[in-house]
Design a binder for these strands. Structure first.
Length: 818
RNA sequence: GCCGGGAUGGCGAAAUUGGUAGACGCACUAGGUUUAGGACCUAGCGGAGCAAUCUGUGGAGGUUCGAGUCCUCUUCCCGGCACCA
């Protein structure tokens, strides 16, 4: 018998598949199309186990669906713009393009080792001009519809990476840069934004339509942060100005005893009275000095100063002192709040500064209500109104509407919805990205580059100077151009786009990646998109997935896409940890190299192990012993098939034939069901059990070469094919097939064979299992109970006792209660 | 603080959704086999006990003939958000 040698047979089959274009998709066949891809990888230079964990199971699903007869398209590409290329270039004195494309070459070879069924004719690399010109096209479409705009505002600046960042790219408690972990600072700059906020409601509502993990949906919903309330105008005493306030609790308006503005609020200077002016100015200066982080740290200890001004409560005409405090955020709502006893922060602030409070909402519970009246704590829940004039006795929910409606008559209030979502800041002060296709002309101001002049090419030979502006800004030949409008000398925009623009629509370009007249042909896109299944890490829960949804919705509205959600189904694979249970990192020395695992065990063993180690969405520590186990399993499969192929003709008894058929069909059913629900680990466990069973039969019966045995082996190989494609292909050929197992039809099970003829029932007495009885599957309830009662052990246990109750669960158990 | 997810043998995990807890794999033990092996085959393997049996799914209660699964309370772990008015 030949030895199982994955190092030899895996590359062999990879070459056969490639040379025969086995996975080439007929794009014209769309009725049963199935489009499944892993998230676009960044070409960091080395494929790690996490990539394998993303790509291999995705490929298993692609292969499973292909065998089910669907026209499966799966491919992969590279998200190749971005900062690491620049850092590497500076460090090594080479061009970012050179570093990037050499990494891609290495990674392509590594990806080949996985044995995935990609149609490589659909691949793309986002740093190619053929791709990024369409990023520029997208920018121009957004600009045309006033959804790309330039504005000056406070933005997040990463001092290390020397660029601004989108809100989504600032993470963690300490507001750090998502890439490098440096705390960001606020800077006032003029930048390009995409108006994602126009889509806030749809981005929220349409989450209901998609089959995504609830966790991701919740995270997106929280990020969008919709809250409904009212905008209420407060007149400033002895002045023409008024202060607008956003509140979700207009029902508490009568309880307002003071107001607070953010220190950055535009009215602050104007409101401060002469005697308070210097204190206010000091406080504002102090706030400006504080970093975002220091402000957050001050959460527990609230600070603020009185402006000297008073506002009039429109509800009861009471005068409210106006304060400024940094717990009120300038960016949210209108940067001003009215404060009352129904809010913990307001309550705390009032106590600290000796501002009076007035309870206006009390809970149902009388004891609690008394405590609230005595101002023992801030009651923030729903309840009944007091101290609120004609609204007394009303429920909070009713009062919320009535008060706004009444004030609306005098145009003092109106209903308002607020979002936490901010517009997407896409400018980056970096070189290695898509140039923003904009020209600045002294006469014509901001001029978009005409579509016919795309791409605005990124020069690929640049010089980096330490701590200087982007190399693009230093390139005179790039910067100096002619105004497309008036033809006078003008300057190009030197910022590039956020790389998340690249990844926001690449899955559409995959489908029509050679199109040089348009980003894609709608006729193709509308047949093949949206994706049937998208698989990637949870780290993109907000960033990439939100942007891709936004861009898809935009293209739906303005470019004729039939669909407005890009990913029908989403799965997040878990995180693979080092063998020590810690996150893999070079400094910890716990990095498992997939290349080494492939060398020692083979790609099939690695694929199988990754899918067998636990639930796919859970991840977990990598175990060296675990992969040895899946390799052993493949060896056993190898042995079974090869022994069969080598065996002399021997007949097998009919009883074994039935036994084998039953085991086979049960296995088909279970593996099929498991694959449908992404239960890779249990599917593989089922295959292992099946192999164990075949071994037992083999030992009992001796080596056989019969029709039913061959059928079982063929089925086994087919069921294994999506998981371990190379060995399956080899064994399929060994069993005499000329065509690839990967385009064979997925086995079907016969429900009659899956049904047991005899089954084992548990017999419980008073809830405890006391015996097992073997009965015919179609046994009646009466017969089952009689059989249970006549079991030797049960007879002893119930002797002399009265059986009060009998429960029969078909196929499971008989329970007797005495 | 708020919102998710979780806790099952020495380890990774299963459990038809209220019905025989621990499938499958790792590790381990014994036997066989092999020139040898960390290879292969067979068997055993939650804990206690010679055994019958008892006990066991983070903890405490509850519902039920029956609870890993449902309810109440609680501890711990992981993830996300966090002064959002």
């Amino acid at each position: 018998m030949r030895r199982y040698n994955p190092q030899q047979l895996e590359p062999k089959w990879q070459k056969v598949w490639r040379d025969s274009d086995l996975y080439k998709v007929d794009m014209s066949r769309t009725a049963d199309k199935y489009y499944i891809i892993p998230m676009l990888p960044y070409p960091s230079g080395d494929l790690h186990v996490g990539h394998w964990y993303n790509f291999a199971p995705t490929d298993t699903l692609a292969r499973f669906n292909r065998m089910l007869g669907r026209n499966v398209l799966s491919t992969i590409g590279f998200d190749s713009f971005g900062l690491p290329a620049e850092n590497a270039a500076i460090k090594r004195g080479i061009q970012p393009a050179q570093w990037t494309y050499s990494n891609i070459k290495t990674m392509m070879a590594q990806i080949d080792q996985i044995g995935a069924s990609y149609d490589w004719s659909h691949t793309l690399t986002t740093s190619d001009p053929e791709y990024y010109r369409w990023n520029q096209w997208l920018f121009l479409q957004l600009y045309k519809h006033k959804l790309a705009y330039r504005a000056k505002s406070l933005v997040n600046w990463c001092p290390k990476d020397q660029t601004v960042l989108a809100n989504e790219q600032v993470v963690g408690e300490k507001n750090v840069c998502e890439r490098c972990g440096t705390p960001v600072v606020q800077k006032d700059m003029e930048q390009w934004f995409f108006k994602i906020t126009d889509y806030a409601d749809r981005l929220l509502d349409d989450l209901e339509q998609v089959d995504w993990p609830t966790k991701v949906k919740t995270m997106q919903a929280n990020w969008i942060g919709k809250s409904q309330g009212a905008l209420i105008k407060f007149k400033v005493k002895d002045s023409d100005t008024s202060i607008e306030v956003f509140t979700t609790r207009p029902d508490t308006l009568f309880g307002a005893t003071y107001m607070v503005l953010a220190p950055e609020h535009p009215l602050v200077k104007q409101l401060a009275t002469s005697e308070q002016k210097s204190k206010v100015a000091d406080y504002v200066r102090e706030t400006e000095r504080k970093t975002e982080l220091e402000r957050k740290e001050g959460e527990k200890d609230k600070t603020g100063v009185f402006t000297g001004a008073y506002a009039i409560n429109p509800a009861n005409k009471e005068e409210l002192p106006v304060w400024i405090a940094d717990f009120v955020l300038a960016q949210y709502g209108s940067g001003a709040v009215f404060a009352d006893a129904c809010d913990e922060r307001d309550f705390e602030f009032a106590k600290k500064f000796g501002i009076p409070l007035k309870p206006t909402v009390i809970p149902e519970d009388e004891i609690e209500a008394q405590k609230v009246k005595d101002l023992e704590y801030a009651y923030t829940g729903e309840g009944v109104l007091i101290n609120s004039g004609k609204y007394d006795g009303m429920s909070t929910s009713e009062a919320r509407e009535k008060i706004v409606a009444d004030l609306a008559k005098d145009k003092i209030a109106k209903e308002q919805t607020n979002y936490k979502l901010r517009d997407w800041l896409i400018s980056r002060q970096r070189y290695w990205g898509t140039p923003i296709p904009i020209v600045y002309c002294d006469d014509c101001s901001i001029v978009p580059v005409p579509e016919s002049q795309l791409p605005v090419a990124l020069p690929e030979d640049v010089t980096f100077e330490l701590n200087s502006r982007s190399p693009l800004a230093a390139r005179e030949d790039f910067v100096n151009t002619k105004c497309p409008n008036c033809k006078k000398p003008a300057k190009r925009e030197t910022d590039t786009m956020d790389t998340f623009v690249c990844s926001s629509w690449y899955f559409l370009r995959y489908l029509d990646n050679h199109n040089n007249r348009a980003p894609f042909d709608n006729a193709i896109i509308n047949k093949w998109a949206p994706l049937d299944h998208y698989i990637g890490g949870i780290e993109h829960a907000i960033l990439h997935l939100l942007y891709a949804r936004f861009v898809t919705k935009f293209l739906h509205d303005h470019h004729g896409l039939d669909f407005d959600e890009p990913f029908k189904k989403l799965t997040n694979q878990g995180l693979i940890l080092g063998p020590d249970g810690q996150k893999m990192s070079k400094s910890r020395g716990n990095v498992v190299s997939p290349d080494e695992q492939v060398t020692s065990y083979g790609a099939d063993s690695l694929r199988l192990y990754l899918m067998f180690m636990g639930p796919y969405e859970q991840g977990g520590p990598y175990s060296m012993g675990g992969i040895a186990g899946t390799r052993r399993f493949l060896e056993r499969v190898w042995t079974l098939v090869n022994e069969f192929a080598d065996a002399k003709q021997v007949a097998m008894a009919d009883t074994e034939a039935v036994e084998i058929a039953v085991a086979t069909h049960k296995t088909i059913k279970k593996v099929t069901k498991d694959l449908e629900t992404l239960g890779f680990n249990t599917a593989i466990a089922t295959l292992m059990s099946f192999v164990n069973e075949l071994y037992k039969i083999k030992v009992k019966q001796g080596l056989s070469r019969t029709w039913s045995w061959k059928q079982s082996l063929e089925t086994l190989v087919q069921l294994l094919a999506p998981f371990a494609p190379h060995i399956s292909e080899e064994l399929w050929a060994e069993l005499g097939h000329e065509n690839s197992v990967h385009i064979s039809s997925w086995p079907l099970w016969d429900e009659n064979l899956v049904k047991e003829e005899m089954l084992t029932l548990a017999v419980q007495v008073n809830g405890k299992v006391r015996a097992e009885i073997v009965v015919e599957a179609d046994i009646t309830e009466h017969a089952a109970i009689e059989a249970a009662k006549s079991d030797e052990r049960i007879v002893k246990l119930i002797a002399g006792k009265h059986v009060k109750k009998t429960i029969y669960v078909p196929g499971r158990l008989v329970s007797l209660v005495t």
